[in-house]
Simulated assay, not measured.
Amino acid sequence: MSDLFPATGGTYLDQDAYIADFDRRFWRTDAEGFWKLERMQSYDEGDFPSWQALRHGDWDQSLRLIEELRPEYEEHYGKIAAAGFAMHRVRVVETPLIPYIQWELTILHTKFGYGERVNVLDAAEVAGEETEGPLPELCVMGTDAVYVLDYSPADEPNGAVRHTDPATVTRARTFIQRLYAAGEALDTYFPREVAGLPAPRGL
């Protein structure tokens, strides 16, 4: 979005460099918190076991593998709380929900129980923001940096552009916070819109 990011500036990072930079900055996130905006309706999750099970049509196994992640999530979000910041996510969804979104919201509902603050926003609610194309995929690290994430045509992670200019970071964080405030908390959305859906048959 042209009003969020300057025409010039930012540093392109390939995927390996982005992951390294993200990991380095994540645990330095200040009290403003971590804010993420997800707009795409599917991503290539690589060799993530639960996603692979979904791809192959084994929904029961996909759910079992999510359950197995609970100790890992409990530890991770405990460390985040101890570090003094919170994670917030805006998940834009198109309806009817496709299998990927059904699967992701199931994982996010598990994470919600351990402290990640997830709000869901229907795509119709952001249509006015998308006159120049779909909203970007964003991660904001407190007051430190914002990443504009890039993906290949096959929905594979493909690096990011990092902005560290304080005004740009503030604009991006404020934008996500506005969308977050317009969304619905996942703990009320999930039981009504996701829990009763039939098992997806793969991707």
Rank of each mutant, 00 (worst) to 15 (best):
M1Y: 06
M1N: 07
D3E: 15
P6Y: 08
P6D: 10
T11W: 10
A17D: 11
A17Y: 02
D30C: 09
G33C: 13
G33M: 05
W35V: 00
L37D: 01
R39S: 01
R39D: 03
M40W: 05
Q41L: 12
D44A: 15
E45N: 12
F48S: 06
F48G: 00
D60C: 08
L65T: 06
I66C: 05
I66T: 03
I66A: 04
E67L: 11
R70V: 14
E72R: 13
Y73Q: 13
Y73I: 10
E75S: 09
H76T: 12
K79H: 13
H88Y: 14
V90C: 04
R91L: 12
V92Y: 02
V93G: 01
P99M: 10
I101D: 03
E104W: 02
T106A: 14
T106Q: 11
I107E: 05
L108I: 11
H109R: 14
G113L: 05
L121G: 00
V126K: 00
E130H: 08
L135G: 00
C139D: 02
C139K: 01
D144A: 09
V146F: 02
V148G: 01
D150I: 01
P153A: 12
D155I: 02
N158W: 03
G159Q: 02
A160Q: 03
T170I: 10
R171P: 03
R171T: 08
R173A: 09
F175R: 00
F175A: 00
F175E: 00
R178V: 11
R178N: 15
A182Q: 15
L186I: 15
F190C: 07
E193A: 14
P198K: 07
A199D: 10
R201A: 13
